[in-house]
Design a protein around this nucleic acid. Structure first.
Lengths: 210, 210
DNA sequence: ACCTGAACACCGTTCAAGT
DNA sequence: ACCTGAACACCGTTCAAGT
């Protein structure tokens, strides 16, 4: 019988929080070192110095553990992105800043990205990809829609463009890992330019600066 | 001891080819019906009316079986795409035709796409995603580079644009499945327009300060 | 409440044995 | 060569038992 909780963190005891954090940390290290396939509960528990059964006690299942690992890393990514987008003077600048922020974050945290990539490659469903993707896509769609309402962007479908942009962003860690020689700064600029051209009002004889 | 072969299909006997095809078919049906997680060798073999050991006899491992399933479906996709791109009068038209072709193919083969998506979500590495992706990316990069050399496209990095486009294309089956109400024709047009704007020469003359 | 570790059901793979 | 099916090593999860 494991502790019940839906999403409230208040219901978790101090020990439980500490154990979960310890297990998540051990999982990240194990995945990064041995790869996802070899990261069994026995190995993760061994690294943490606890019994395998204790992992099942604190997590509903392997899915929840992996989801927590992905969520922790994803939260750091979002923080880095939003930090950069905050100072933007226009929606186009915000879009560019977000794209740059993500690509550069990936370049600066390659080891964490390796664990995340292992999860994405071997258990993306457990990694909360489906859930987090929709959150991310909806956020992007909101930004794009606002940019349209302010007359900065052309009349595309915000949701479909967000899906497309999200896919392009998710490809970044994969690309940076599989081609370590890639210049992250240039990648960031290329990607920012690509979507800037895709979303902006076509300037052919239309408006100039506001 | 299973039959050895590297990639040549000539070395495979008639029976082996038939068995492999039978097993692949059973795997596709099992994955589509029960999902990837429940598609064990025992269940696939049961559907095919054979022994589980026979699967290991004909395939080097589960990875190879899943890779074959993904490859068969992927081949059908590529065929549909290239068929459409063949009649294009320009590189921009070819790009648009490929994008439309893929999105519409996904819309017309949702059940096969379901199995492919199950694989992509649960075992993309086994699904040959890494290998096939590079092939596909290289092909796209080649097309983009040619378009640049013929003066149709602007001066982006062909490889990075191909990675981005490939990511956007791979998001299509996912999106069409998770939102069945999506108008595939409109999705195809939106995506084609997005990348047409991203790759074409900007009409405003040259870019400022390189 | 927290934790252990053996037991359990299941998995992919192997292999002696059949034809 | 082709195929079977029990045996094997391993997995995530459960649970009686300890504190």
């Amino acid at each position: 019988m494991r502790p019940e909780n839906q999403s409230g963190e208040q219901t978790r005891s101090f020990i439980e929080q500490a154990r979960r954090a310890q297990i998540v940390r051990a999982a990240v290290e194990t995945i990064a070192e041995l790869g996802f396939a070899k990261s069994s509960f026995v190995r993760i528990a061994g690294r943490a110095g606890i019994s395998p059964g204790l992992i099942s006690y604190h997590f509903a299942g392997k899915d929840e553990l992996i989801a927590q690992v992905a969520a922790d890393i994803g939260a750091a990514m979002n923080e880095a992105i939003e930090e950069r987008a905050a100072g933007a003077r226009s929606y186009l600048d915000a879009l560019r800043a977000m794209i740059r922020g993500l690509v550069l974050f990936c370049a600066e945290h390659r080891t964490e990205m390796y664990a995340l990539r292992e999860i994405a490659e071997n258990a993306p469903a457990s990694g909360g990809a489906a859930v987090d993707r929709n959150v991310s896509v909806d956020q992007l769609a909101g930004l794009l829609r606002e940019g349209q309402e302010h007359g900065e962007f052309r009349a595309f479908d915000p949701h479909l463009m967000a899906v497309t942009l999200n896919a392009a962003l998710e490809a970044a860690p994969r690309e940076l890992y599989s081609r370590p020689e890639t210049d992250a700064g240039r990648y960031a600029e290329e990607l920012a330019e690509t979507f800037a051209l895709a979303v902006r009002r076509t300037g052919r004889g239309r408006r100039r600066h506001g």
